[in-house]
Write a protein that binds this DNA or RNA. Sequence first.
DNA 1: CAATCGCTTGGTAGCGCTGTCAATATCGGT
DNA 2: ACCGATATTGACAGCGCTACCAAGCGATTG
Lengths: 342, 342
Amino acid sequence: MARKHITPGKIRLAEVAKLAGVSPITASRFFRNPDALSAGKRARVESAAKELGYVPNLAARALASQRTEVVGVLIPSLTNNVFADVLRGIYDALDGSRYSIQLANTRYSILQEERLLRLFLAQKPAGLIITGINQTADSRRIMETVDCPIVQIMEVGPSPIDMMIGFSHFDAAKAAIAHLLAQGNRRIGFLGARMDPRVQRRLDGYRAAMTEAALFDPQLIVTTAIPTSVTLGGTLFADLLAKTPDIDAVFCVNDDLALGALFECKRRHMAVPEQMAIVGFNDLEFMASSEPTLSSVRTNRYEMGRNAAMMVIATLEGRRPAEPIVDLGFSVMERQSSARRS
Amino acid sequence: MARKHITPGKIRLAEVAKLAGVSPITASRFFRNPDALSAGKRARVESAAKELGYVPNLAARALASQRTEVVGVLIPSLTNNVFADVLRGIYDALDGSRYSIQLANTRYSILQEERLLRLFLAQKPAGLIITGINQTADSRRIMETVDCPIVQIMEVGPSPIDMMIGFSHFDAAKAAIAHLLAQGNRRIGFLGARMDPRVQRRLDGYRAAMTEAALFDPQLIVTTAIPTSVTLGGTLFADLLAKTPDIDAVFCVNDDLALGALFECKRRHMAVPEQMAIVGFNDLEFMASSEPTLSSVRTNRYEMGRNAAMMVIATLEGRRPAEPIVDLGFSVMERQSSARRS
DNA sequence: CAATCGCTTGGTAGCGCTGTCAATATCGGT
DNA sequence: ACCGATATTGACAGCGCTACCAAGCGATTG
């Protein structure tokens, strides 16, 4: 005999089947496809499982069936509030379903992402949710050959690997600048941190809007690769002011930077929006309750996560969404910080 | 024959073993305990695995070995920045190790927690990290009988289930109040939201400090079960002012509330700290760069997560920490918002 | 009334890996 | 040169579940 202790009290599917008076395979079917059983057996298996407190062994199930019920989620940051909202949506959508979540943090590195991707796929996940549309060529090839639903989130673009949900960061930034221009601002600065691909596209949107208005000036742009923070917002804003003291507005690629810029304005006794208009990005909760309230570009992060997870589930259940690309849009929340100066 | 397609190209341990000219079990040992192999075989297996691009089947491994290399993490919220930092610490500590993380969100419900706990334990995790010291009696019993390292995080208290890392929320709140008293404040309000067990203990600390100073007045306390937010901070602060207009300071159970209170002060043209001192809790990044800078109680969240994960790993590797309870302490960050009025 | 059909159910044989234990190789000490 | 001890290695069986196929069965049909 190979195994020493056979743990006599352990409840396996066989025990449930015996108590219910059916074969193990019938009991197995009860858990995966109860409709295939007759009502009588179904009830018998159900009560037997409950009585014995049966808990299926997921490893055995995965081994025998060659698949798991894990949805892998690859996001670049755990700290960023933006992803917290997305994650909440994903968890909410998958909560109560048969699927569980395996989360991995790519730290904004597509090489790290590729490594984690390989790790995930070794586990034969039921589905995959991955951030953005910029993956390594190898990552893309791997994902294209894998047979599970994959949803790219956070932005939309051409040629999805499988499915895609997000919005256009380019258009969103452009709309924010259009709003600032409409309010009469001319020298509009740009504050960017971490400069990941999506932030880069916001910069592109800014550049396009400014160029169209014949107001583009590279001196107006301050960016850094440093991760974002409120403190950094203040620092970058100070840098911008040092370079171009004549700016009348600033567009920040996220709300943390915007809040930092606001505080820096206060420290300098610079009135917002009278002397300096500010617009952020993401519309985190605090933007609506600061003093003055801060304008921002609202993005539907929770819905993005929720829908991405629902798209995965739907595909797994054979109800694949008709449209593989979902654009959730955005809206420019116009608040006090960018109100037209009276 | 039971299986139809035997997927001829698939790389199993047997293929690696054959190429390396060893038995499968020897190849298996290479992955779990390479030191047990002779140098020659080790090299042969290693190169064979690399050549074939072997990826171990985790399900088979888990089934055969009756355990996994997954560390379960139970936290009450994904949105709360506090847990983002803890999680970052956990991921950092486990990154590069053989262990992976399974994350679950209890939504501040100990019943939900118990349900998720059962789900986790069915997967025979290598270890468990769970938030707080208030679990259901059933949860506790289950965990006490389970044979894997368990670390309770976020606070310390008597009788850990296994190990524990955190700090005393009671003492931390008491220290914050002591600071406010030392700055000459007398009517110190209390703002609390979500009132989970740890927040409750902060309230206890507040009450103790105020009672010792013979300044306790229940009218000074405003709490709600609503989840916290900056906006809520403003609202609660307004409620508090309506009840007790004579307060000279306010202690907020977290930094979001403190920021909301600060903005509300600004809206009311109430000078901080001259007319109103403010102290928050957690010392999130923005507290140091607001205008005025906000005092807070710094807690070592990243280290908490990191150390918790390291305690799990150490235990799994037979290097169990000598001291099962680790108190990471806290420090009161005294900033402009609570500076003594001149 | 036999042939056919669809629905349920069960038997068999692994999924890929590792625990146990036995067998063999190696080694130092006397 | 012999002995026991230690380091390596391999054989075997089975972890708990499910894929596949086939069989049973009552109902339907020409």
